[in-house]
Write a protein that binds this DNA or RNA. Structure first.
Lengths: 140, 140
DNA sequence: TATTGTTATACTCTATAACTATA
DNA sequence: TATAGTTATAGAGTATAACAATA
């Protein structure tokens, strides 16, 4: 990896920066940024809500960061903290009606923004990229 | 892209975060972080130094950010600002002897850290990843 | 007028440590 | 004693705007 243009680390952070920036711009119409959005998506896709610890693990963030993200989502009435029936220490983060609706609209906007950056890749190449990125991540 | 695990944006930022974190840890022995390091690499690989504007464009950063990065590298005696013969507004950032030596050692450390995350990918797959990332970036 | 480098500022993201209430 | 959530803080990264010197 002599050249910077061949450095996977550099390319990853550059690509990530570019994509995150434009997805953030697309999400701003919905009052979201990528981090809040990814929490919302996880919660919406869960059956009966998720404990914050699990959200943190899935997103690779520290649990203390989830607190603030959920605070913001709760303030916007997109999710709420429900008591966990099994463990009184734990909250289950559950999406509200408004949360589900916002997620759908936000996801549509995010997809458009993302697709703009993937338009030079075929569907097969995009799948390959996803597979390769997953294997880099799983390695952690 | 229903699932978060299939979202290229999420995967990119997650992979980038993981790799940057461990490359930063590897570079810390050399008093560098990835952003300073990437400036150093660019400067070392240039024939006769680079104007800051060009560094900014290549790295996708704002010129005002380059000022601080070059300040730090200069303070560590890894680069120096030389007057540009052609344009008195512009400085050419040039690597010092110490800069070249540090770059070599830092690059070796960064490569080890990076390879740790790529070990599940074949050489061909790594090349494919590089190609795909470049095409996502070029699209900007 | 436009461009290079610079300074300043504000905001977001990341990283830790410590605290509380429960288990 | 360990774990879930929380609070606090500091540092790094990102985004803009404005300015002086020079083109």
């Amino acid at each position: 990896m002599a050249e910077l243009a061949d450095d996977v680390g550099f390319l990853l952070s550059r690509a990530s920066g570019i994509v995150v920036r434009s997805v953030n711009a697309a999400l701003s119409d919905h009052g979201l940024r990528v981090r809040q959005y990814s929490v919302l998506v996880l919660v919406c896709d869960s059956e009966s809500g998720l404990p914050q610890r699990e959200i943190a693990a899935t997103l690779g963030l520290d649990p203390s960061q989830i607190v603030l993200l959920v605070d913001e989502l709760e303030r916007a009435d997109l999710v709420r903290r429900a008591p966990s029936p099994a463990d009184r220490r734990s909250h289950l983060v559950v999406a509200t009606e408004r949360g589900h609706a916002t997620r759908a609209a936000a996801q549509a906007a995010a997809t458009v923004a993302l697709d703009g950056h993937l338009r030079r890749l075929t569907a097969t190449e995009t799948s390959t990229l996803i597979d390769l990125l997953r294997r880099v991540i799983d390695d952690e």
